[in-house]
């Protein structure tokens, strides 16, 4: 029994008061917005500290250096969400292979290497212009989604341990580098000045791979369906 399309829309007496209240909230928030005095922002501080940050783009410098905690926690949130999705259910990937059209297969074969190339170009450029781990990661995720909807035969045979390692690559690299800073600079996440740009690039590449894999796995919606059968097959051949 699917009630996707034909569920009865609630006709309740709550509608009018709620709309009135949220309109009041709108007016209140707008009034607050108008009464905020312009403080000028943090642009000057960021600009003055930029040479020390190891990145030429101010947004990347803020993301990975000045507010590195935010990004670390964000990568953790992404990891937690895939953890939640995997513990709730299995991905509903087709068990039997669907016949995908030849045109789609060849298009995907052409596109995937190009997308991976562009993703890493974006990560590489992230230290200078707009771009970085998240933009590159989302393109990697798009490549993964394209593979998922094209039903590539190899894809359902990927053992989940590879995916698991990919998910933790970003967070673990980030945390290890942050702890490494304790030994060199006595402060958590205070990168040593000599190799700061290399460290940032390391973090960005690891995070991009993790973000791409995680988003694509979230699209699949659960842990791999055939995990147990593959494990059995491997066990029987050994």
């Amino acid at each position: 029994m699917s009630s996707h399309n034909t569920y009865p829309e609630r006709k309740n007496s709550l509608a009018l008061p709620v709309i009135l209240l949220t309109s009041g909230l709108f007016l209140l928030l707008s009034y607050t917005l108008l009464s905020i005095e312009q403080a000028g922002g943090l642009a000057a501080q960021v600009q003055s500290a930029l040479p020390k940050s190891g990145a030429e783009s101010p947004v990347t410098a803020v993301l990975l250096n000045f507010r590195g905690y935010d990004t670390l926690l964000e990568v953790m949130v992404l990891f937690l969400s895939i953890l939640g999705a995997w513990s709730i259910g299995r991905a509903s990937l087709p068990q039997a292979l669907i016949k995908t059209s030849t045109i789609q297969i060849s298009c995907v074969r052409l596109l995937i290497p190009l997308m991976i190339l562009i993703a890493f170009y974006l990560v590489w450029q992230g230290t200078r212009f707009a771009g970085g781990a998240f933009q590159g990661g989302s393109i990697l995720a798009a490549a993964g989604v394209l593979l998922l909807v094209s039903d590539f035969p190899k894809l359902i045979q990927i053992h989940s341990i590879h995916l698991r390692l990919g998910f933790i690559l970003g967070p673990v690299t980030f945390i290890l580098i942050a702890f490494y800073c304790i030994f060199t600079n006595k402060t958590f996440m205070a990168y040593p000045a000599a190799i700061v740009s290399q460290l940032l690039l390391f973090i960005e590449i690891a995070c991009a791979i993790s973000i791409g894999l995680t988003l694509a796995a979230l699209f699949a919606g659960g842990r791999p369906a055939q995990e147990s059968s593959i494990a059995q097959r491997k066990g029987s051949t050994l």
């Binding site: 943090l42 803020v62 507010r67 998240f134």
Partner: peptide, 14 residues
């Protein structure tokens, strides 16, 4: 100001 931009970028992923 790059700080709100970075915060929004973080927020979008979350």
């Amino acid at each position: 100001d790059p700080v709100p931009q970075a915060m929004v970028l973080t927020g979008i992923v979350v």
